[in-house]
Design a protein around this nucleic acid. Sequence first.
DNA 1: TTGTTATTGAAAATGATTATCATTGCCAAT
DNA 2: ATTGGCAATGATAATCATTTTCAATAACAA
Lengths: 148, 148
Amino acid sequence: MPGKGKWQNRFSGHGRRWTMPRETILQQLSRTKKHQSPKEIFSAINKFNPGIGLTTIYRTLELLDKMGVIHKLRIGDGQVRYELQGKEKEDHHHHLICTSCGKIIDYFDFIDEEMELIKKTEKALTKKHNFVINNHNIEFYGLCEKCR
Amino acid sequence: MPGKGKWQNRFSGHGRRWTMPRETILQQLSRTKKHQSPKEIFSAINKFNPGIGLTTIYRTLELLDKMGVIHKLRIGDGQVRYELQGKEKEDHHHHLICTSCGKIIDYFDFIDEEMELIKKTEKALTKKHNFVINNHNIEFYGLCEKCR
DNA sequence: TTGTTATTGAAAATGATTATCATTGCCAAT
DNA sequence: ATTGGCAATGATAATCATTTTCAATAACAA
């Protein structure tokens, strides 16, 4: 059964609760592939559900990030942004960011080769520095067509 | 002649001026390999040179970043941080960040292999999306020994 | 030496994120 | 089905990094 229950089970049995605001926020995150900021998510939700506060958005996003459901992006435009963390290998991607206008492009190229390098690096770093590595992030910065 | 004139020439002839605050800020950046925030730089300088304002620190760091002299880091601890941009290949590194305590480890491993992948990716992205790529960034997130 | 104008610093403004706290409502145990 | 404990919520205020403003200063070319 897809749809409603898709996320619900990840909230049960850990002292966490499945609530309407959380469902609404996850719905909004699913609605687009764009990288949404807390304020943007708030505005979108607020139009049809004015009961949900900005504070809750912040808290929920932080929680979802910790749970690994979403991914936090710090692109440096003054706001944190989030995107759903895909489960499939095909969802794995990184970002190409225009330092002038802030435009973000998701790219999916070279993921296989990347994974190889990443795995090797992770392994070495884990051993060398006694870290548990949970995530990685690759970004390219430059100027887009328009800002060139 | 190394030392004082090391940076000065990068400021002449572009409508830019070589000033005491700028020299002092560059000295402070050179003093350590750590990733310093504007406030930290301000505090350090303020002890022996109380004349330089925090605003100037911000402005100068932004300028130096644009000039490519320093590199801006957004590790997500609430402050932007900067490190000197090394010229040598041996200076090229990335970061391993503890999501709990904010500790940052510079790592220099697998740079050759990384460069190969990066170059290939850059080339493809440049062509595909019509970008001019100036920089890239790789980060690993995890938990350090103490925060595990 | 001087005029132009980039740079500076103090203070105020901005804007994102976080803390507080009284209230609400989820849900496991009954 | 009810209920008690406590996670979650939302409004507000507080915090804190960064930016803007603007008058004063100083670098540097002529």
